[in-house]
Design a protein around this nucleic acid. Structure first.
Length: 353
DNA sequence: AAATCGGGGCT
DNA sequence: AGCCCAGATTT
């Protein structure tokens, strides 16, 4: 394979690579610098299916609160989930904490450098193992994320759709790997995808590897990679309740089940989420509706503010509120101390005004 | 191979 | 109103 591909890309990266909090650019490969594995791992987990702009504040918060993997391992899971709240995909946070403890217990606090060992870590899959191995340890690894898939599907004008084309893309990417600067090369590819080889309106005229690309400058480049159509979202509805105590200084909060949607995160009590129209309800104060879009669900919640003394009436009216054993009264002024996902922050905002 | 799992930013 | 994102895990 033509090594000028990686050479051109790395030259471009040295000039145009983004400055990111978790990144130490190894200019020209001469400084032999690398970010520490904890920083790389933490940032890579946060960046899974999440844009750089969203990650920055969370990365700063985590590294300040837990500067080392030992600090993170020693935290309570609820603390980690509270810090992660709003970032989404909460299995990442649960696995992050589990992984930190695993690194401390089984690897003496040191991240392994091989992809094979990294793949044994909770929350670390093929992409993240390759990314950590190359970026933190400069090991040769084929780092294929959504950016890289887009780039090479365009380079070879692949007609096969994702995700079926993944294997073929991986093999193409493998052929272009450089002989050194593996971490820089991986990050260069991802920067190229983020700033030049974009999904829409790619900037082929500034692309450092345009001469290798079948679709460079083609009007149809934006239609690659081809993808299988998505299924429509299920639409679910429910009532949700902001339940105040008599003094109106506390609200009812409970922890969700460990597994599944928003696992181990906190919630306000609600009826079951059902694919049915909502029954009439005239107890307490209606605050309106909250519409929340998950990856595969469109959820419509009708929000009610009720008093603790009205809970019995709501039950008698036939509304099964999912009150759990772990429910507790929480000072409204201290809600920030709990792991409230964005959906529940919407409810809170509606209730607090 | 398909489904699950968040949220926000961009077009 | 979709599409996309430095994907992993479960089914």
């Amino acid at each position: 394979m033509d090594l000028n591909f990686s050479k051109n890309l790395l030259t471009w990266y040295d000039k145009n690579g983004r400055e990111l909090p978790w990144r130490i650019k190894n200019y020209g490969g001469m400084q032999n610098l690398a970010p520490d594995p904890y920083s790389v791992w933490l940032s890579e987990i946060m960046l899974q299916q999440t844009v750089v702009a969203t990650v920055k504040d969370y990365y700063a918060k985590f590294t300040k609160k837990w500067p080392t993997v030992q600090d993170l391992a020693a935290a309570d899971q609820d603390e980690v989930l509270t810090a992660w709240a709003g970032l989404g995909y909460y299995a990442r946070a649960r696995n992050l904490h589990k992984c930190a403890q695993y690194i401390c217990d089984e690897f003496n606090g040191q991240f392994p450098k091989t992809e094979t060992e990294l793949l044994t870590l909770p929350g670390v899959g093929p992409y993240t193992a390759a990314a950590i191995s190359s970026i933190a340890f400069n090991q040769k690894a084929n780092v294929v994320d959504g950016n890289v898939e887009r780039i090479f599907s365009r380079v070879d004008k692949l007609e096969e759709k994702l995700p079926a084309a993944k294997k073929q893309i991986y093999e193409i990417a493998q052929k272009y790997l450089p002989k050194k600067r593996f971490g820089d090369y991986a990050q260069a590819l991802m920067d190229l995808g983020a700033t030049v080889c974009k999904p829409k309106n790619p900037r082929c005229e500034t692309c450092p590897v345009s001469r290798f690309c079948t679709l460079s400058g083609d009007e149809n480049v934006q239609f690659y990679p081809k993808k299988t159509p998505k299924k429509p979202k299920k639409q679910l509805k429910a009532h949700i309740f902001w339940v105040e105590n008599a003094q109106k200084d506390q609200v009812l909060l409970q922890k969700r089940a460990e597994k599944g949607l928003l696992g181990n995160m906190m919630e306000f009590p609600s009826t079951n989420w059902l694919d049915q129209d909502l029954a009439a309800q005239n107890i307490g104060q209606n605050l309106g509706e909250v519409i929340h879009i998950f990856t595969h669900i469109k959820l419509v919640l009708k929000v009610w503010k009720i008093q603790q003394s009205q809970l019995q009436q709501v039950a008698e009216a036939g509304f099964a509120i999912n009150l759990q054993e772990n429910k507790k009264w929480v000072n409204i002024g201290k809600l920030d101390e709990f792991a409230l996902p964005s959906l529940m922050q919407k409810i809170r905002k509606l209730a607090e005004g």
